[in-house]
Simulated scan of single mutants.
Amino acid sequence: MSRAMNIALPEGEVTSRCQKAGVVISAIEPLPSGGTHLVCLTSEGAEQMRSEFKAKLLLGKVKRLPFYVPPSRW
């Protein structure tokens, strides 16, 4: 099963809900049309978050930003 999913929620909310569930994020990025692309560290974490975000999952192809580089957190 894929560790990646697209969710119709802002990045901050996705991050906080993953932290609350104890699921580690491998990668996260905003989607140009709104929403968030999330990659969990483990497939088990991804399954847990798919259940958590079931009503907000974006199905099908979703346009992503080319060459997205997250802002530095340093």
Rank of each mutant, 00 (worst) to 15 (best):
M1N: 14
M1E: 12
S2R: 15
S2L: 08
R3Y: 01
R3S: 07
R3F: 01
R3Q: 09
A4G: 12
M5G: 01
N6T: 09
N6Q: 09
I7G: 00
I7H: 00
A8H: 05
A8N: 13
A8T: 00
L9I: 07
L9E: 09
P10N: 09
P10T: 04
E11S: 09
E11T: 10
G12M: 02
G12F: 03
G12N: 08
E13M: 12
E13C: 09
E13W: 09
E13K: 14
E13L: 13
E13H: 12
E13A: 12
V14L: 03
V14Y: 01
V14E: 00
T15L: 11
T15K: 15
T15A: 10
S16M: 12
R17H: 04
R17Q: 13
C18N: 04
A21Y: 07
G22K: 01
G22V: 04
G22M: 03
V23L: 01
V23A: 07
V23Y: 00
I25W: 06
I25M: 05
I25S: 06
S26E: 12
S26I: 07
A27L: 10
I28P: 04
E29V: 01
E29F: 07
E29Y: 07
E29H: 10
E29L: 09
P30T: 14
P30G: 12
L31N: 00
L31S: 02
L31A: 01
P32E: 05
S33K: 12
G35S: 04
G35I: 05
L38R: 02
V39N: 01
C40F: 06
C40P: 08
L41K: 13
T42Y: 05
T42A: 05
S43F: 05
S43L: 07
S43R: 10
S43V: 10
E44V: 08
E44T: 11
A46C: 08
A46T: 04
A46S: 14
E47S: 11
E47P: 00
Q48W: 04
Q48K: 13
Q48R: 14
M49F: 05
R50K: 11
R50D: 02
S51D: 15
S51I: 09
S51E: 13
S51V: 08
S51N: 14
E52I: 08
E52Y: 08
F53D: 02
K54P: 02
K54Y: 10
K54G: 06
K54V: 12
A55F: 08
K56I: 00
K56T: 07
K56R: 11
K56D: 12
L57N: 05
L58A: 06
L58E: 06
L58D: 05
G60F: 03
G60Q: 03
G60H: 02
G60N: 03
K61F: 10
V62T: 11
V62P: 04
V62N: 08
V62G: 04
K63W: 10
K63G: 09
K63V: 15
K63I: 10
R64M: 10
L65S: 14
P66R: 09
F67Q: 15
F67S: 13
Y68K: 02
V69L: 14
P70W: 06
P70L: 08
P71G: 11
S72W: 12
S72L: 15
R73W: 15
R73L: 14
R73G: 12
R73D: 14
R73Y: 14
R73N: 15
R73S: 11
W74E: 15
W74S: 15
W74I: 15
